[in-house]
């Protein structure tokens, strides 16, 4: 049994310790907002927060999550996440939408440590999050928009 918190709720899971957090979230807990795409931390679609820091859940074994606090897109309610989601909708960022949970989780972590990012800051923070639809230009604009709205 491995115990941890997901979106502030305690969970105990009987899973092999090498099971990636991603599959515990998706298959055991039904939190499917976190996506599988590459399985080896190359694309960022599975990004969640572990004690507030962005991690790739596909390469985070559940054993490493024991006793830790995990936040997924479903439970991410910070001011930054709200501002980002509003900006995402306002600018119609998503196309297929599959990568966007991960994009927002990475962007939220950026805004938490850097409330006024430049284009270069955004590129550096989100370079590990692939978008095959190439919505990158709107992602950049939406992160700026979210940063501005939080300031106001």
């Amino acid at each position: 049994m491995i115990s941890f918190f997901v979106n502030d709720k305690p969970h105990s899971i009987d899973a092999a310790p090498d099971t990636p957090l991603l599959w515990v979230l998706r298959d055991n807990l039904g939190l499917t907002g976190t996506k599988y795409s590459c399985g080896v931390a190359l694309c960022g679609a599975c990004t969640v927060h572990l004690n507030g820091a962005p991690v790739r859940s596909c390469m985070t074994p559940i054993s490493a999550a024991a006793g830790q606090k995990i936040t997924t897109i479903e439970g991410a309610k910070s001011k930054a996440v709200k501002a980002l989601q509003d900006a995402w909708v306002k600018l119609d960022v998503p196309q297929c939408g599959y990568c966007q949970s991960g994009q927002i989780m990475s962007a939220a972590a950026l805004l938490a440590r850097n409330p006024h990012p430049t284009d270069a800051d955004i590129d550096a923070a989100l370079d590990g999050n692939l978008c095959r639809c190439a919505t990158y230009q709107r992602i950049r604009a939406a992160v700026h928009q979210a940063a501005r709205s939080m300031k106001g």
Binding site: I73, V89, P94, G97
Partner: peptide
């Protein structure tokens, strides 16, 4: 506006 932007931004899509 797209009909699916919200669901695709909050993980519910």
């Amino acid at each position: 506006k797209r009909t699916d932007s919200k669901a695709k931004s909050d993980g519910s899509a």
